Amino acid sequence: MITQDQFQALLSFEPSEQKVLSLYLNTDSSEEPTEAIKLKAKNLLRQVSGLAADVQAVETYLNHSFDWKSPGLALFSSRGGDFFESFPTAVSFRNRLRVTPKPYLKPLGHLLEHYAHYGVILVDRVGARFFAYHLGTLQESNGFLGEEIQKLKQGRGSSAIGRRGGVGGGSREEENARRNLRDAANAAVDFFGNKPIRRLFLGGTAENTAQFRELLPKQMQSCLVGSFVMDMNAGEHEVRTETLKLLQTANAEREKKLIKTLVGTSASGGAAVLGLDDTLEAISNRRVQTLLLSDGFQMPGYVDYNSGFVVANLAKSPLSDRELTAVDDVIDSAFTLSLNQGAHVEVIRDDPDLENAGNIGALLRF
């Protein structure tokens, strides 16, 4: 699993004459055999020319070092394998290969943005289980067990008295359940209180999760992005699989809103730009607050790494091509420069509204 410090180190990679081979793989061996995955990787690597030692370093790692327990894998190799980094992940990637002056980081950036620090609570009328995840990997878990609820048979004992107006067994059961839910909510606050949770999911019956939600403090309620039906005794793998699906859905909904804001702000003449040239100009001027990119969007261009200047159309550049470095993918350079400037970057897959807007745009600081 990659850390933020490791990601920053990759961002700070100094380009040289020798390019970087970046390979992302779906290594989920539950979907297909490892030999089939290796073959797909080998076919991708056949597209590379001039980096034979780096190709060999990657193949050696896949054949002898990778344990094939992780669904995703990001690999970076340069200088004949002298620079080599591998990052197994709990979330799979789309298979892709890039050869660029710097590590190709958009898929890793997407992973760090969308799957960082989320929590799950399973709750029923007796107790709760808590899970803290980061990048799809379980970091910590705990639980709470309240008072067992004894159900009385209908029409017997105090439950019958309760129907005539007294305090019956049914009422005591409900009060015990409410107390358990309150205590479980307090336990959840203790568990998640010192963790940087950004999103929170509730699992259980619809009735229990609705009641439990209201017992959480406002700050935790603001992190809630979804609920799902699941048995309290479900295995951790089942919990993780279900919440990863919910997280993808929640992220897609958030992206839709962000793109709508971008397009609407641009149309009204607000602080936003759409399209390649205007967005690259905003990056060069350090005006970008949030950069939005279509996943897979590539375009050749030019960059000056020292000043942070990036351009696709030389007719719009105050610098000549002799003063700039030509790159095969100026979009990747825009991604890296924006992150280094402190901008928020979203890599968005298969969104027609963003594609119609030119596959790139930005909300601006000023």
Score class of each variant (00 low, 15 high):
residue 139 Q to N: 04
residue 140 E to Q: 12
residue 87 F to N: 04
residue 129 R to Y: 03
residue 133 Y to K: 13
residue 60 T to E: 11
residue 66 F to G: 00
residue 70 S to M: 08
residue 57 A to T: 06
residue 68 W to I: 03
residue 79 R to A: 08
residue 97 L to Q: 09
residue 73 L to H: 09
residue 83 F to I: 01
residue 58 V to H: 05
residue 43 N to V: 14
residue 96 R to Q: 15
residue 139 Q to T: 04
residue 128 A to Q: 02
residue 41 A to C: 10
residue 101 P to R: 09
residue 94 R to A: 06
residue 119 G to T: 11
residue 76 F to E: 03
residue 80 G to E: 06
residue 62 L to D: 01
residue 94 R to K: 12
residue 86 S to P: 00
residue 141 S to N: 13
residue 90 A to Y: 06
residue 85 E to W: 00
residue 89 T to V: 12
residue 78 S to F: 02
residue 72 G to W: 05
residue 113 E to K: 12
residue 84 F to C: 02
residue 128 A to L: 03
residue 82 D to S: 08
residue 127 G to L: 01
residue 65 S to E: 13
residue 113 E to F: 05
residue 73 L to D: 03
residue 125 R to L: 04
residue 102 K to Q: 13
residue 119 G to E: 07
residue 53 A to K: 15
residue 113 E to H: 11
residue 101 P to W: 01
residue 71 P to W: 00
residue 137 T to W: 07
residue 128 A to W: 04
residue 135 L to S: 06
residue 101 P to N: 07
residue 112 L to G: 07
residue 125 R to F: 00
residue 103 P to L: 12
residue 71 P to A: 04
residue 140 E to N: 06
residue 52 A to D: 15
residue 52 A to L: 08
residue 131 F to P: 04
residue 56 Q to D: 05
residue 93 F to N: 06
residue 134 H to G: 05
residue 42 K to H: 13
residue 56 Q to S: 07
residue 109 G to Q: 13
residue 77 S to Q: 00
residue 95 N to S: 09
residue 94 R to F: 02
residue 123 V to C: 08
residue 138 L to C: 05
residue 93 F to M: 04
residue 113 E to N: 11
residue 103 P to S: 10
residue 122 L to S: 11
residue 43 N to I: 13
residue 98 R to W: 00
residue 62 L to H: 00
residue 125 R to N: 08
residue 54 D to K: 07
residue 52 A to V: 09
residue 60 T to S: 03
residue 41 A to Y: 02
residue 47 Q to L: 15
residue 46 R to K: 15
residue 64 H to E: 15
residue 98 R to H: 05
residue 90 A to H: 13
residue 48 V to L: 14
residue 48 V to I: 14
residue 56 Q to H: 09
residue 140 E to L: 10
residue 113 E to Q: 11
residue 112 L to S: 03
residue 130 F to E: 09
residue 105 L to D: 02
residue 120 V to A: 15
residue 115 Y to S: 09
residue 60 T to V: 02
residue 93 F to I: 07
residue 141 S to Q: 15
residue 123 V to N: 06
residue 126 V to Y: 03
residue 123 V to M: 11
residue 65 S to Q: 13
residue 137 T to I: 08
residue 89 T to E: 09
residue 81 G to F: 12
residue 70 S to N: 09
residue 84 F to K: 09
residue 64 H to N: 08
residue 102 K to T: 12
residue 87 F to W: 05
residue 109 G to I: 10
residue 105 L to Q: 11
residue 102 K to L: 07
residue 55 V to S: 10
residue 129 R to W: 05
residue 44 L to G: 13
residue 89 T to G: 07
residue 56 Q to W: 00
residue 40 K to F: 02
residue 87 F to M: 08
residue 43 N to S: 14
residue 97 L to E: 07
residue 100 T to I: 04
residue 70 S to C: 04
residue 103 P to Y: 05
residue 60 T to F: 06
residue 66 F to C: 03
residue 56 Q to I: 01
residue 46 R to W: 05
residue 117 H to P: 02
residue 106 K to Q: 11
residue 135 L to A: 07
residue 57 A to N: 09
residue 111 L to S: 10
residue 118 Y to S: 07
residue 131 F to C: 02
residue 51 L to K: 12
residue 59 E to Y: 00
residue 90 A to N: 08
residue 99 V to Q: 10
residue 130 F to S: 06
residue 85 E to G: 00
residue 40 K to H: 14
residue 94 R to W: 01
residue 61 Y to L: 06
residue 123 V to G: 11
residue 58 V to W: 04
residue 119 G to Q: 10
residue 80 G to C: 01
